[in-house]
Simulated scan of single mutants.
Amino acid sequence: MTALASNAATSPSPQVALDAHAPLIVALDLGTTLGWALRFSGQAMSGTEHFKVGRFEGGGMRYLRFVRWLDELWRFAGRPSTLYFEEVRRHRGVDAAHVYGGFLAQLTAWCERHGVPYQGVPVGTIKKFATGKGNADKAAMIEAAKRWGHRPEDDNEADALALLHWAIAKEAKA
């Protein structure tokens, strides 16, 4: 799966359960630059995908490519046991809110179509888990991912990794 493997950091993190039979967990930071992380075969993989609309494309093309990417993820890794996404309640602008809403609509419809359980996790919850501060900045989130042994490309990937670690910690408590 070219799109998924292109930015994959496949070295396991000491904080991620290394059980090769552990369920597949997917964590997404939705946006035009989408951060993703997953626990696959006991290892953490992560990266970013870019869904910017081309000059001569309609606005819906980003969402079609996103759904195709989700389908590729399914073919590569199999059915996720749970898919988590960063739940954003405030956006810097109207355009960002519209883009996020489009990704969220496509994601939840895809999960419903495939019977994949999904859950939104508030941004503050993820930041507090990763850094101890619910309003941590991008640099702090990147540093948290590095402490877990990852090398995130940007804050989007760092946010997805933090969400993955949160989900694994939640699963361990259950």
Rank of each mutant, 00 (worst) to 15 (best):
L28Q: 06
V67G: 01
W36E: 09
W74P: 00
L18R: 15
H91F: 15
M45W: 15
W36L: 06
E57C: 00
D19Y: 01
G35A: 08
E87K: 15
T108R: 11
S81T: 10
L104G: 05
F40H: 15
T33Q: 14
Q119M: 10
T32L: 10
A96G: 07
D29N: 06
V94M: 11
D95S: 15
V67Q: 10
R75T: 11
L30A: 07
F51M: 05
E49N: 12
P23I: 07
H114A: 10
L83A: 08
P117D: 02
A37N: 06
Y63I: 11
T108K: 08
F85R: 09
Y100W: 11
K52P: 00
D29A: 02
F103R: 06
L73D: 00
R65V: 01
E86V: 12
W69A: 14
M61G: 00
S46F: 04
F103M: 11
G47K: 04
D95M: 13
T82F: 08
V53M: 02
G115H: 10
W110E: 04
G101Q: 07
T33Y: 02
L104Q: 12
H98Y: 13
F40N: 10
L18E: 12
A109I: 06
F76Q: 13
A77G: 11
R89C: 08
L28M: 05
T32Y: 07
F66R: 03
A77C: 14
